[in-house]
Simulated assay, not measured.
Amino acid sequence: MRALLSKAPGGPETLELAELPDPVAGAGQVVVDVRACAINYPDVLIIEDKYQFKPPRPFAPGSEIAGVVSLVGEGVTGWAVGDRVISTVGHGGLVERMAIDASRLYRLPDDRGFEDGAALLLTYATTIHALLDRGHLKAGDTLLVLGAAGGVGLAAVELGKAFGARVVAAVSSEAKAEAARAAGADEVIVYARAPFDKDQSKALADQFKAATGPGGANVIYDPVGGDYAEPALRSIAWEGRYLVIGFPAGIPRLPLNLTLLKSCDVCGVFWGAFAARDPAANQAHVDHLFRLWAEGRISPRVTEVFDFAEGGRAIAKMASRDAIGKLVVRVGG
């Protein structure tokens, strides 16, 4: 089978299309013929050895897949050859076939395509955990979403609206603003590109404050970090919750006196660890997501599909921070 492999640390241009032996289904596993693999920011980091997990090389990036079960291992119940499935796999998804623990599979509805299925779980499951478990978002709250046109950003806009919040979306271009509005944002801010000096940082804080209103943002969803974090924190409400999702713009240093003045919380969001530690709670969230998907209240926005051999180009586009919505690599027929 073909696989897009990282054989040495480096950027997307270092990935190599290679042949590997077909996997076998061990006890408790199935083999999935991968049809589509979504690209996420951790794929940018993991091939450069900048992610918190460093798999032994060679390995394939790609953390969420959709495909068809082709082999069923010993002890597996509830799954059969031909079943359409989706899964989050951490890494390894840019391959034609992979062995996956059956416990990590979810059934792909018959009326949904493989590209949409591959684009669902990581962004929306991260976000529902962030908003409900860490942010305690409730109807009537004001939610400020940074990077609101990316995969997790659009998921936060949609889920924020589904949960009854007023959503303020912050983006870096008018094209991204259109995507945020289409996802249901009540108000959209177009901010400048960092880095910011002191005056620019204050101006962005004022922009956030004006958009969130005199009460401030009850919940701030930040998958961006960098110089955007402190201005956003300055717009937080009394006893607000600042959700730390990721750092494509760099790891910020927040002035902790602001947390005292606003009596607010800064909350880390690590969905993968949450799902491993509390699988029942994660399953309840995923069930909720499937209901919202069936009702049309959320829908992954796949904006570009790449051929398998161009998987590195998809990761490069993610690294550029110009992507809107989700990028997906079409792996098999």
Rank of each mutant, 00 (worst) to 15 (best):
A3Q: 10
G10F: 09
E13Y: 10
E16R: 15
L20C: 06
P21M: 10
V24S: 14
P42I: 13
D43N: 14
I47H: 11
F53K: 12
P55R: 11
V72Y: 09
W79G: 05
V81M: 03
R84Q: 13
R84H: 03
S87G: 07
T88W: 08
G92N: 02
E96P: 02
A102W: 05
R104H: 13
Y124L: 03
L132A: 11
H136R: 13
L144A: 09
V145R: 07
L146R: 05
G151P: 02
V152K: 07
G160H: 06
G160V: 01
G164T: 08
A165Q: 01
V167M: 06
V168I: 15
S173D: 04
A177H: 04
R181N: 03
D186C: 10
A192D: 15
D206I: 10
K209A: 15
T212Q: 11
G215F: 05
N218W: 03
Y221H: 14
V224G: 07
G225W: 00
D227V: 08
P231Y: 01
W238T: 10
R241Y: 01
L243G: 09
I251R: 13
P252W: 02
L256G: 03
L256Q: 03
T259I: 10
F270E: 11
G272T: 12
R277W: 02
Q283N: 13
V286G: 13
F290E: 00
R291Q: 12
L292G: 02
G296Y: 12
G296I: 07
P300L: 04
F308N: 01
A314R: 05
I315F: 05
K317E: 13
A319D: 11
A319R: 15
L327M: 09
V328K: 03
